[in-house]
Nucleic acid binder design. Structure first.
Lengths: 341, 341
DNA sequence: TTGAAAGCGGTACCAA
DNA sequence: TTGGTACCGCTTTCAA
């Protein structure tokens, strides 16, 4: 069923039918009604490719997932992000196109995306501190927004980020207030901008109290369970082990917990832990202790918001960069305690 | 830069340039070489929409994520699945199009996807036991493959699934061999096919030994941490608490562990736990105890394989349904122990 | 081996 | 208010 067939069936021209379908004013109400009803009845949907060709708009947004040889992990929040963004897209009739791009072929990939012309804009995920994509997209004049920031990039760009440094500074402060002086930081890969900012926040809190920063208390790697386990075991084995930990991901924190337990220590008494967690109501019962930054539902919210920003950029080009910073919610539960004396 | 400009620049017809680019034989080697070189130099990429219109093939695969009002969770493995599938797609020049579809509007959505014509095939995620999508897609004559199965559907279809019932039967057997008689099952939502099959496996193992199935030992809900915690606390509070648990997701298992610990019990001594886990090498060190079914890397593998199946179906239509069953790897670590006497 | 021209399925300008 | 027609960028048949 295409426009031609539909219009023949109606005894009208393609032009009129198209106008009726797309809500143009110069169609009589009677005609429009008939067209709409018949289209519905005959299950007509316009061919997206033809429509795109004719209008020059793809009605689709690209999400690029970098695939690296070195660390082949996919951003674990990607699914939730897409779910949030998808709701916004659906509302505006947009679709999501995903391209997996090898780190090394990024430049060519973006050019080709632009040339292929099947997206109107792009969302950049997982920015590194010095992320080349931003300048690249800027030069290509392809509308884009970034989920996160890239500290070392000077080109202006639109983004939405969580205030990661502030969140980690507050978490560290909280532990310092409880008397902890040796606080372990189990961080993600620090060439990722969010992980870098988290460390900055941690260090800032220590600096503010004149506490020397001890590299032996900081670990940075891909955020797996085994990493959390190893890093924690390691630090706990030292002569002067940390009395508290800040763990930068839920999965990593599983390893942290296990390492603590394996050593015969008790969380929330011998060792305090602050980490992300998933379900806020759960935590409010006092069972645990999150920095509430990247829970699944907040990621969905971020996705929806960022999608709106991008659509706005597409609709009204030439706007100044749009930026937004979300504060993380910090809720403390029972797995923190004053430092043992 | 489009074909017209490129061909004018070369002093050739669009036809010849197109043929050279697409590897048709009736072009002289000299011409082809020149065309290829110039195209590369001028950063030419064909417009995907125009190409699609002309060829009738979209070179894209649709992934549909059902969004329900009742349980708004996104399949947590979706990101990894896409990563795996994406590699296959990229190799064949395909792209991924994602549509979020409301449960209630499924029928219309699939028809529209078909009519819009921007995908050549579809991957169905998270099948429920009686999943209407399968018959729908079958009738629409849109090639599709299913990640998982739908036990109550009779229409034949192509799928790739993990042998979930067998995995859970083996896990249960293992615990029974250790002398456990009260084994708690922390399961996902059982209208989902995979969760249903897991329960079947669990029940089968008990039946084989003539052990009565106790509904009080089975819990089914969305697989969150809080669910794992509540279900476990609950069962442990009974007069005759279970001595072992099988937990159907990594996240849920966090809650299980916490509930056990909170009760002053020790995992791998007082209570045994079998669950999924993420990193095989980790587990081989004897630290823990997974049923190795849905780790991130195995999901990627499944994605890649399923994508290949679909592309094959698209290339050679009229093939009988393709089916594949993956056995789960079962590895036992230190968090299981003989039943306390 | 090359090129002209007719589509693919829509949109949008111009004329009626 | 409606219809004819050119065009979006590419592929493909047919003729040269």
């Amino acid at each position: 069923m295409n426009l031609k067939e539909l219009s023949q069936h109606l005894g009208l021209s393609q032009t009129t039918v198209s106008r009726a379908l797309n809500g143009y004013p110069e169609v009589s109400e009677k005609t429009r009604e008939k067209v709409l009803k018949t289209a519905q009845a005959m299950n007509y949907s316009p061919n997206a490719r033809a429509q795109g060709l004719a209008t020059g708009r793809a009605k689709a947004i690209g999400h690029v997932l970098p695939v690296s040889d070195q660390h082949e992990m996919v951003n674990p929040i990607f699914g939730d992000f897409i779910a949030g963004a998808g709701v916004t897209y659906a509302k505006h009739g947009y679709e999501v196109v995903i391209s997996l791009v090898e780190d090394s072929k990024e430049e060519a990939a973006y050019q080709s995306i632009k040339a292929r012309g099947n997206v109107d804009g792009i969302i950049v995920h997982g920015p590194r501190m010095a992320d080349r994509r931003i300048e690249l997209l800027h030069n290509l004049k392809l509308p884009f927004v970034v989920h996160g920031r890239a500290s070392e990039v000077n080109t202006p760009y639109s983004y939405l980020d969580t205030n990661n440094s502030r969140a980690f500074q507050r978490a560290t402060d909280f532990l310092l207030d409880l008397g902890h002086r040796k606080i372990g930081l189990i961080n993600g890969l620090e060439f990722m901008d969010f992980a870098h900012r988290r460390r900055m926040g941690y260090e800032q809190a220590l600096n503010n109290r004149g506490i020397a920063i001890d590299p032996g208390l900081m670990r940075s790697a891909e955020m797996t369970e085994i990493f959390g386990y190893t890093a924690t075991s390691d630090m706990l084995a030292s002569d002067t082990p940390p009395t508290a930990f800040i763990a930068a991901s839920m999965i990593t924190a599983i390893g942290v917990r296990r390492a603590i337990h394996e050593r015969g220590l008790e969380m929330g008494r011998d060792v305090s832990v602050i980490t992300h967690d998933d379900d806020l109501s759960y935590l409010k019962n006092g069972h645990d202790v999150p920095i509430f930054t990247a829970t699944r539902s907040s990621v969905r919210t971020a996705g929806a918001r960022l999608a709106e920003m991008l659509l706005q950029l597409i609709d009204e080009p030439g706007q100044g960069p749009l930026t937004e910073l979300m504060e993380a919610e910090l809720i403390i539960g029972s797995s923190t305690a004053p430092a043992p004396t």
